[in-house]
Simulated scan of single mutants.
Amino acid sequence: MIRTWELLGETQPIVLKMLKNSLKKDRLAHAYLFEGMKGTGKKEGSILFAKSILCENLMDGYIPCNSCNNCKRIANGNHPDVHLLEPDGLSIKKHQIQSLQEEFSKTGVESKRKIYILAHADKMTTNAANSLLKFLEEPNALTVAMLLTEQIQQILPTILSRCQIISFTPLAPNKMAEQLIANGMKKSDAPKIAQLTNNYEEALLLSSDEWFVQAQKIVVKLYQTLRGNPLDTLIYLQREWFIHFKEKDQYDRGLDLLLLLYKDLLYIQLGKYEQIVHINEKELLETNALKFSNHLLTEKITAIFEAKRKLQSNMNPQLLMEQLVLKLQEGFSVV
């Protein structure tokens, strides 16, 4: 997602400011730790930073040209002085760190500096982490390390103390929606999907996932049946919901979609129409919003959150849904 400094500035302005200052003042740290949730652009940011460090025609002191030999080779993943290290199986092992140390004891092949990017740094074995620590304790002025992690709490404090920590924050839903629409996603889908994930790549996958497309329709139809006879709603669960939603994570996704519907009702009551994500169901929701007191609507939202909690506690999913829909039907005609 993040391939230029301009995009980085839009999604991670604080990260841009910190890295830009390091480059323009020529005060590169020996080691950086990029931390943040999945999908926040840490790996893309590290590649971009590597380009800026090695670019032969740097513009404005920090912007890579993307056309010189170094930029092209980094983009293609075959620059001899830029090494990306990822877990071997489930973890990063000691021999991987030792191989990296041996490589970095050599002179740069095509540039003065050598860069290594350690993806999923939290997955290092204890021996690998200790080996890396020795590497960090004896810094080479021409070596730059970038450690990437989604679990900063799993990194040894002694390693953290030797890194400049750069935090990548989740993309705000409205910004995510704007980017998704700019990349061709339907305006009716983008706001909803942006509420479900902070991961740009996952968002794109969701939009083209047939299971997810069908799940949205089933959730809306379930919501509509809640206005009728409780027996009809339970029958709908048997005929549609239980057939489509089978795994625990699928139930959780369905509850998230249901939650978004009730949040939209609340936004309508509060006059925050710009925050509604079910654009195609706007008229239906506007009509229904008048049938709930604010207190009752809050209770229903709380009931969905409670159902999500029970799901994670391994309550029987079918029993959970049957109890939830009966709770959601209570007081539907109250104004």
Rank of each mutant, 00 (worst) to 15 (best):
I2K: 00
I2V: 11
P13Y: 02
I14Y: 05
I14D: 12
A29H: 12
Y32I: 06
F34I: 01
G45H: 05
S46P: 02
K51V: 14
E56Q: 13
C65D: 09
N66V: 11
K72P: 15
A75H: 09
P80T: 03
L84E: 06
D88M: 04
I92E: 01
H95E: 07
I97V: 08
Q98S: 14
S99P: 03
S99F: 04
E103F: 13
S105I: 13
G108C: 03
G108T: 03
G108S: 02
E110P: 14
K114I: 06
M124P: 08
T125Q: 01
A128C: 01
N130L: 07
N130F: 01
S131C: 15
A145D: 07
Q151N: 12
I155F: 03
I165T: 08
I166Y: 02
M176Y: 05
M185L: 15
K186H: 15
S188Q: 14
D189N: 15
K192T: 14
K192L: 15
Q195A: 12
Q195K: 13
N198R: 15
N199L: 07
E201P: 10
L204P: 01
L205Q: 05
E210M: 10
E210H: 11
W211Y: 02
V213E: 03
Y223P: 04
T225F: 03
N229M: 04
D232F: 13
T233M: 02
L237M: 12
L237S: 07
F242A: 13
I243L: 14
K246L: 11
D249L: 14
Y251G: 02
Y251C: 03
L255F: 09
I268K: 00
Q269G: 06
I276A: 07
I276E: 01
I276H: 02
I279Q: 06
K282W: 09
L284A: 01
L285D: 00
E286M: 12
S293P: 09
N294S: 13
N294K: 11
T302D: 14
R309W: 00
K310H: 12
L324E: 03
L326D: 01
Q329A: 06
